[in-house]
Each structure stands twice: as structure tokens, then as C-alpha cells.
Write a protein that binds this DNA or RNA. Sequence first.
RNA 1: GGCGCGGUAGCCAAGUGGUAAGGCCGGGCUCUGCAAAAGCCCCAUGCGUCGGUUCAAUUCCGACCCGCGCCUCCA
Length: 474
Amino acid sequence: MFLHDTMSREKRPLLPKPGRDVYGMYCCGPTVYGPAHIGNFRTFTVQDVLRRTLEVAGLKVKHVRNITDVDDKTIRGAQAAGQTLSDFTMTWTDKFHADCTALGLLPPHVEPSAVVHIPQQVAMIKALVDRGHAYVAKDGSVYFKVCSCPDYGKLNHIDFSKLETQSENSAGEANDADEYERESASDFALWKSRKPEDGANFWPSPWGEGRPGWHIECSAMSLAHLGATFDLHGGGIDLCFPHHENEIAQSECATGVKGFAAHWFHSAHLMVEGEKMSKSKGNLYTLDELVAKGFTPMEVRATLLSGHYRSSLNFTMKGVDDSRSALAKLERGTDRLLAAAGFTRAEFAAPSAQEVQTSWGRFAKAWEVLQDDLNIPGCLGQVFTVLAEKDEPSTEQARQDVSGLAKILFALGLQLFAAKAEVAIPADVAELGARRWAAKQSKDFSAADQLRQDLAAIGWTMLDRKDGYELKKA
RNA sequence: GGCGCGGUAGCCAAGUGGUAAGGCCGGGCUCUGCAAAAGCCCCAUGCGUCGGUUCAAUUCCGACCCGCGCCUCCA
């Protein structure tokens, strides 16, 4: 498996660190102050495919994705809802998990909570202060001293030694009033001293009561669960700076060990109907909103995977429609292949089949493409190409193909043949359908046509089969 | 200003120094009382523009035009 690495800007192989048999990946998780939107889920879905692909490739993976449950937004949200911070974040954590399940995301092996890891964060900040990489401001806040870290900026290829202050950039008017005690504009908060507006949300520390800064949370949790160095760190591209840059600086300076994450994996953002997602535009779709529009979570997943992870993806309702059609085609092609192999859908879905079978059949190319920088669109193109091949495969060939296809669909997390929600058929519709079928059987076609029109008038269509019919909502 | 990404058919989207995967839509055919469904076939002499390198460029190099992202605790 090869994957583009943000720091080296090269495609590099993914292998566990020498001497280890587990591939450790840390992904920045959600801030649980409301429902996650599809942009968040693009990132998590792409990470899920990476993890699945590595597992199908035979690697043992340890996937860590945190829950950010203490920061400005969660505290404000809890206060607005009149709830304790933990009750509030629990509600949204549960909702996040429900959405993840619906989208077919495998649960991470470890899902650490930032609040639970505050002692580890305090310990890390203390190490930074002791080593001269951080300083305590008058109010008890602690800041990371960027100039003490000579290679700060290496992830983003920015040379900070030449910059006088960060605030000289065009966006640099963001000097928060509560950060005026920083020695340099580039320095960032590790510990924020207790403020009245924090309410009951403060913790003890050697510098007084307060709460951790956002960046230190991920450094402490990755250290706790993956060690001072690990294999891969992922997140949305917006986190590349400053969040990930800060994580590197904090972790490497606190532990004294260079090489925090061996590989950096960033996914591009989502646009919605051609526009950047934003609250003011009202296009921050949640999964629930898309389901309410009649789309299934699997259709949403397929849409989120319809572009390469390093390109921004324009999410449109037409796109989800297209994905629905494509998934249906994928199901039909899979059905044909199963028939050629003499398998049932149930056998295809069984996980044991994936473990036992090792062949890729005609899908070897699709698998190869997927392993080249997680090229999901290219992989799916290959899958469709094979499914469209004209020559009927032999039973043996088809069985090998099924094995390969099952593994690829598992890697992509595309679950086919999900039970369709049964649409209740109203009694009057059922009666019209029965009458039309009877009329057709007795070859009274004019009556049958009239009844078809009657059904259409109330929003239903009737699909004739050989031995019966099907009523569908238009 | 700094760092970075991208412009491929009506829409979406892979890809390659040797002549353009795939999906959607559309058109045709088969099947069909009708209508669908399904299957098959067709659908970019062309890959933002202009130069350059090359036997050969959409693919490499340069310039330009256009769109986008980060530089603000946004995945």
C-alpha cells in the first residue's frame, strides 16, 4: 500500500515501524457539540477506508480516534442547553456513534476522551515547562514557546525563524483579548487559566485551575495510546495548520523523541452544491437531513467516496442520486457474478468467506489501484469494468472473482443488498393494483390502462412481472 | 503576501510520454398488450490558454488565465 504523505509530499509505502507488528494510526475526531455534518464524515469515511484497506492487506491496525469533549464550543453549548458538560457531550457522542454506524464506519479500536486524559495533558505541559519549551503567563495560562522549537513549521514547510510575527499575514488581526500575554503571536495556549465563563468546567494543575488548550489534547492522547512515535496521523486538511504542526512541536519537545508521526494523511474538504460549507449558507448537511430527503446512509457513503481523497469534492443531491443508480448497478452485477459462482447473497455477506478465500480473481487490478494512494474512484471504475465483461466466467473463475469483490467491497465499506425499508401500501392503492392485475389477466387492456392512470394520479406506479406485480411510490 | 490544490465529454470522475477507465444523464436496439425493469450498443481526434522539450504531450518544462483551500480552536 502506498499513500501520499503531507510532510514529505511524496507517495510512500505504509508499513508498521520496524520491530512492531501493529500499524498505529491516530485520527483527530469530532468535537461533540452538535451533530456532525457530511464534511466531517467525508474525512472519517476516508479514514475508515484506509483502515479497512490496510486490514484487508493483512496488516494488524490500531485505529485511535479521539472525542474532543472539552473546548470553547462544548462548554458554551452545554451552558446554553442548561446541561453539565459531560451530559451534553455524551448526548452528541451518542449521536455521532449512531451516524457512524449508519454510514458503515468501523468503530476505532480506541476512542479516547479528552476530558479523561487531562492528567496526561497536564503531565505533558509540565514536561514542556521543565524543558524550557513553555512558559507560564501572569494569569496562570501556559503557552508553548514556538521559538524554542527550531524545526517548528516542518509539516507545513513554513520557515518561522524568518517571520517576525505571525500577525503580519493578511488574516492576522485575530488577537484574542485573553491571549495578550503571549510573548509571540505564534505561541499557542497549552493551558488556559480558569475564567468565570467556564462555569464548573475547570481542573487543577500546577499553574492553578483551568482547562487544557485544544492542541495538547491530541498530543497527550496519541502518546497514551500509541506511544511517542507511531505510524500515521490523519485529519481534515484544515487541521494541517496550526493543529498538527502544534502537535508535532508539543509531542517532540515534551518527549524529546523526533519522528512523532511517520506519515501524515490529510483529506480535502467537501463543497456543497458548488459552495463552501458554512452555517450562514445553511448547507451544513447532517446525515439525518439527507435521510429525510430519502437517501440511504449507504448512498451517502458512496457519494462521499466518489472522488479522490486529496481533491475537494462537490457534494450535490444529483451526486447522491447518481450514487444510488451506481450502487444499484453494482448490486445487479454482483448478483450476476454470484449466480455464475453458484453462491447466494447470504454466502457473499458472510465474513467467514473473506477469511477463507484468498484469491482476487479478475479484481486483482481493482485491488492494486486501491492500494495506490487509496484511489477509490479508480478502483470502482475497475470493478465496473470487470462486471461488464461480456464473457461468462466459469464457475471456478466466478468463485475467485466473488472472493476478490467481497474483499474490495469490504475495504470500501460498501454494504450491498441492505434490506430496503418497506413502504406501507395503502389499502386503496392495493385494491387498485389488484383490480388492474385482474383486468390484465383477463386481457381487458383498456381497463388495465385506466387503472394504471388512476394509480399514477395518486402517486404510485405498477411494475408488471411474469407472475405478479409490484407497487412502487413514484 | 506566505504555503498548497485543481481546471479531462451535458453532469460527476480516474488515468497515462505513444494516442482518453468508470458512474450518471441522453440516444438506439432487444424484450414487452401498455408502462416499466433488465440486457446489449452508441456517446471527448479531445484532456484551461499559449509557447518549449520530444520521433511522439492531455501526460514533462515555462508563462499566462480561471477556480479553490489554509495562514482565525472548521474534518
